[in-house]
Design a protein around this nucleic acid. Structure first.
Lengths: 318, 318
DNA sequence: AGTATAGGATAAGTTATAATTATGCTTCCA
DNA sequence: TGGAAGCATAATTATAACTTATCCTATACT
């Protein structure tokens, strides 16, 4: 059973000054107050901490042992408390980042490695999942940041956006594609709304928001009751499913760029400009960011604007 | 300015359990009590320690920093407090011993060295002075033990004996001596009280208690107004003074044993048995002795009864 | 969509504790 | 011998800790 902690503070001063009167003066209290607190501490611990001589206190063995426990703590606290409000002067500690699998595997380690070259005291804990569990992680405080797709007309895809703060990083084009064989068999150049809504679709999004957004963007109509023939748990798997000819799906342009050029995957081109979303850095809005978090965020915002990084995401898709 | 220490304890439990309700349960208090104490701590420190989410607390940077300060202390205290009343299981630490110069130089280091072979964690701080300042040191708590001469009829020489506890160690004979030249000139075989009280005396005792005791012991009379021609500050110097023929003095028999045998120093032999005092180990009575102190005391009591040690102090003085 | 639950915050009131003033005791010093 | 100083103790006052009651709100469940 732990003793009263404030009495430990009183004990520290008595021991350090070897005087109840001196301790009382230092603590701006009366001598009897200090005398009584010491006695109560001794009663709690059931052992004398000092032998009382005339005008003199001699620590007992128990008193000495207690002081060895208390002194380091009080000294350290006195040194550190004045600085508790100050941010650390250099980024350090652990950052927990979540990202989608493909972004996580391909690009995020590069960013983290660069960041650590500047700030070697920072370590990372990375987690690659889809957006929804990542956002849950941020909301629950299990992640510091998540990288997720956010549509320009916010509020539709990112639920509960009022609890997150969002920093757009990278623009990403989303295109409707299918395999060459599926196109020849099912599309045949007919890119009309009426033809497309009757086809099979695959998605990596439980509520197939991306598909709905795509139709809204390109046709200004809501596509109801799309025939979702498959829901997958990752964008990677989605692209595989598309390539296998299982149906139409909305994919990130840069992720299928090679296959488009090889003609294995066919984009469904519409006159309007392609739909765009931003890969964004999401953080809990109400949480006061640490220096480390702030520095990482700034690093990512700057880092993703570099020409070589932008190249990764830019393709001349019609 | 240090915060309220009991609030640091509350903070520790909240942080460890990441819950105000759970901390309240653990501390057997109500939830509002804990909530309010945390708020008061944050007010003291002028910084939030947690970001409040619904049913969730996320530590701020300041909260994390404070926990790194508090956690080691609380953990250590919880581990150690149950044992605060237990003596240490092995003698260790510093012992501060005072002894008279000659005993200190010749014998005490031998004892300490032996003791340290058994208990290597014990260190010594030795101080060689006369009895009075040594007793002051014990009384003031500056010394743990003092080795001083104590007469068998206690209470006369050892002032304030009710505050000291005394362990007699070694019997020591005290004899009245003078130089051979002084004996031939002044004594001439006349060892009567009347002759002796008229002579010159030297002493290492400010109140010349030893001389008074010697006359009391041998003649059953109080020797008043002895002619003290010199007061010295050590027994060593006293013996030197005696050898120089400055007068009579009471000396420890074993310290002048060689000179007696050489005939340089002459003992004033009286029919009665020689006066005896005990070299005793003196400690503050009201102070609870540590294990180390107790062990040293037992060691000295046993060690001074050994045949080889007794030899140092035994001489066939008439 | 409505209800129940759970966790943190807040207010008001009660209880317990901390701190004060006054005094006593005792040793030491001038 | 009287005064000073330091620790202890008792009675009283002031303050803080803690409780009960209630509110707010997000989440989960039906």
């Amino acid at each position: 059973m732990l003793p009263d902690f404030n009495r430990l503070k009183v004990f520290y001063h008595i021991y350090a000054l070897n005087s109840i009167v001196a301790a009382a003066n230092r603590l701006h209290l009366s001598q009897p107050a200090i005398s009584q607190q010491l006695q109560k501490l001794e009663a709690e611990l059931k052992i004398p901490l000092f032998t009382r001589l005339h005008k003199k206190l001699v620590p007992t063995a128990a008193g000495e042992r207690l002081f060895t426990l208390v002194e380091p703590f009080v000294d350290k606290l006195q040194n550190e408390i004045p600085y508790i409000r100050q941010p650390m002067d250099r980024p350090s500690g652990l950052l927990r980042i979540g990202a989608p699998r493909e972004f996580g595997k391909e690009y995020l380690p590069k960013f983290c490695s660069s960041f650590r070259q500047q700030y070697p005291d920072v370590t990372f804990n990375l987690r690659f999942e889809e957006s929804v569990p990542l956002l849950d992680g941020v909301r629950d405080g299990a992640l510091d940041y998540a990288l997720v797709d956010v549509f320009l007309n916010q509020g539709e895809f990112l639920d509960n956006s009022n609890i997150f703060s969002v920093d757009p990083l990278i623009k990403e084009e989303l295109i409707l594609v299918c395999s060459q064989s599926y196109y020849k068999k099912e599309i045949c150049g007919d890119h009309s709304f009426r033809n497309l809504v009757k086809k099979d679709f695959i998605t990596d999004d439980d509520e197939h928001n991306v598909l709905i957004q795509w139709f809204k963007h390109h046709f200004r109509k809501t596509a109801e009751n799309l025939n979702i023939v498959m829901t997958l748990d990752s964008h990677e798997a989605l692209i595989s499913g598309i390539k296998l000819g299982m149906g139409l799906g909305v994919a990130s342009a840069h992720l299928v760029w090679q296959e488009v050029q090889q003609g294995k995957v066919i984009p469904i081109a519409i006159a309007r400009e392609n739909m765009v979303c931003m890969i964004s850095l999401v953080q809990l809005q109400d949480k006061v960011p640490t220096l480390t978090e702030k520095t990482f965020r700034d690093f990512m915002i700057v880092g993703t604007q570099k020409a070589e990084v932008l190249e990764w995401f830019q393709c001349a898709v019609p």
